[in-house]
Design a protein around this nucleic acid. Structure first.
Length: 430
RNA sequence: UCCUCGAUAGCUCAGCGGUAGAGCAUCCGGCUGUUAACCGGAGGGUCGUAGGUUCGAAUCCUACUCGGGGAGCCA
């Protein structure tokens, strides 16, 4: 008997096949039973009618419980009533493990309960769809970068000090020295770009901030491309192409999953180049005109970002922030020294900043000046300064937040569902 | 750290000063097309913890614990 994946069952109509999987749900109507079966690749309904099967086998099926693991053999039938177009007329069931009292019932549950059972929650159709889309997003990112002459480079996770010196880092010991979990691999990636031209890192990032919002995780994944001989403007064009490639890949490969999530596809179909652009100056004027209290020189808060993003139906770049509110390594605009060549990409529908990028300072003297302005120890950054002393070139890079991107594309309320086991404020279990 | 909301059955919640409730889940019975199936019945509780007010507290007050949403910070 051929064992097949549920997702390929439409190709086996009127054939007898075996599925290895679990009982997602059971419904009984007396002399006819319906099993919702899953195997990781999809869902299918199995049907057993009392007058079409032995009494013994009918009783076996009747005794099955939610999340029991089993081997099911049956005939694939085309049926208009089935969401996937096919059903399985069950011939035989071999129970692998009978489950008792599965905690997550088909009714409503609260977030805390579900998070405590995250190891089981991920079996749910909605969670499966999200994790599947996350994987396709990752695939699209890699495919895009790998085919655009980028080389993947892995920066360290244990670092001697802060990268940007702003947020709180997780502290640990490195034998007798102090060490911190990485907050960004960017500085290392700048070094790698001078060695390999165009590089990207793809790994976890840690922020010991007591952030407790739908947009924050303590541990999250970031893609950080860094490109030698690439200007701010060229970097923005690469970012646009990357985001568009991600969205179109998901639209073409994850139709069922997006449907499971109830995502409005028309919103995603609008994600086409060129994206909207607005300068920091224009954004300030816009916010002031819409009655928000903000003055030039202040950074945007979340409500400001949302107001800007909601003004556009596609992602929007906010460019050229004041140098005083941005990281020390950003290159000043040559035509206007008080702003830097940077851009944040705000996702539509209030999902916030998904990319932060800039052209980096390539002049050793200016960088040293920034070290003292930001009270950074020059000895800690000696190696970083070296990059400006030996064949310095104009270069740019950006960081793409994976979970925020997944939340936006999936249309989720919260980033905690975009990763298998989210690390949240006060939650380290399971 | 601050603001705000919450904690009652396995789960989701109602009850807001006078004998602890419902739906779902579980168990028993019924139903040949169910899609969070439906119908009938049964079992199931230290009302987050500790104090206080009161004849009487799940209900009012105080503190603490745990959690949700948000601010700041950022992806």
């Amino acid at each position: 008997m051929e064992t097949v994946w549920i997702q390929s069952l439409p190709n086996y109509v009127e054939q007898t096949v075996t599925i290895h999987g679990w009982v997602h749900q059971k419904r009984s109507s007396g002399k006819i039973l319906f099993l919702q079966l899953r195997d990781g690749t999809g869902f299918i309904q199995g049907v057993v009618a009392k007058d079409e099967i032995s009494e013994e086998m009918f009783d076996v099926v009747n005794s099955l419980t939610q999340e029991t693991s089993l081997y099911v053999t049956g005939v694939v039938r085309a049926d208009e009533r089935a969401p996937s177009g096919v059903e399985l007329s069950i011939i035989n069931v071999d129970v692998v493990h009978l489950t008792h009292d599965y905690p997550i019932t088909p009714k409503a549950h609260g977030v805390d309960f579900l998070m405590d059972h995250r190891h089981l929650w991920i079996r749910a159709p909605r969670q499966r769809a999200i994790l599947k889309i996350r994987a396709e997003i990752i695939k699209a990112i890699r495919a895009f970068l790998d085919s655009h002459d980028f080389t993947q480079v892995d920066p360290p996770i244990l670092t001697p000090s802060s990268c940007e010196g702003t947020t709180n880092l997780f502290h640990t010991k490195y034998f007798d020295e102090d060490a911190y979990l990485t907050q960004s691999g960017q500085l290392y990636m700048e070094s790698a770009a001078m060695a390999l031209g165009r590089v990207y890192s793809f790994g976890p990032t840690f922020r010991a901030e007591k952030s407790k919002t739908r947009r924050h995780l303590i541990e999250f994944w970031m893609i950080e491309p860094e490109m030698a001989f690439v200007t701010h403007e060229e970097s923005i064009q690469i970012q646009e192409a990357l985001i568009q490639a991600i969205v179109s890949h998901v639209l073409s490969t994850c139709k069922l999953e997006l449907h499971t999530l109830g995502r409005d596809l028309t919103k995603l179909q609008k994600v086409l180049e060129p994206f909207a652009r607005i300068t920091y100056d224009e954004a300030i004027t816009f916010l002031q005109q819409t009655g928000q209290e903000i003055t030039w020189g202040e950074d945007f808060g979340s409500p400001h970002e949302t107001a800007i993003a909601e003004h556009f139906d596609r992602p929007v770049f906010v460019e050229k922030y004041p140098a005083s509110i941005k990281a020390f390594y950003m290159k000043p605009d040559p035509t206007r020294e008080e702003v830097v060549l940077c851009a944040d990409l705000l996702a539509p529908e209030g999902y916030g900043e998904i990319i932060g990028g800039s052209q980096r300072i390539d002049d050793a003297d200016l960088l040293q000046e920034r070290f003292s302005q930001h009270d950074l120890s020059e000895s800690d950054y000696a190696w970083y300064l070296d990059l400006r002393r030996y064949g310095s070139v104009p270069h740019s890079g950006f960081g793409l937040g994976l979970e925020r991107t997944v939340a936006w594309i999936c249309g989720l309320e919260h980033v905690r569902e975009t990763i298998t086991f989210p690390r949240l404020l006060y939650r380290l279990y399971p």
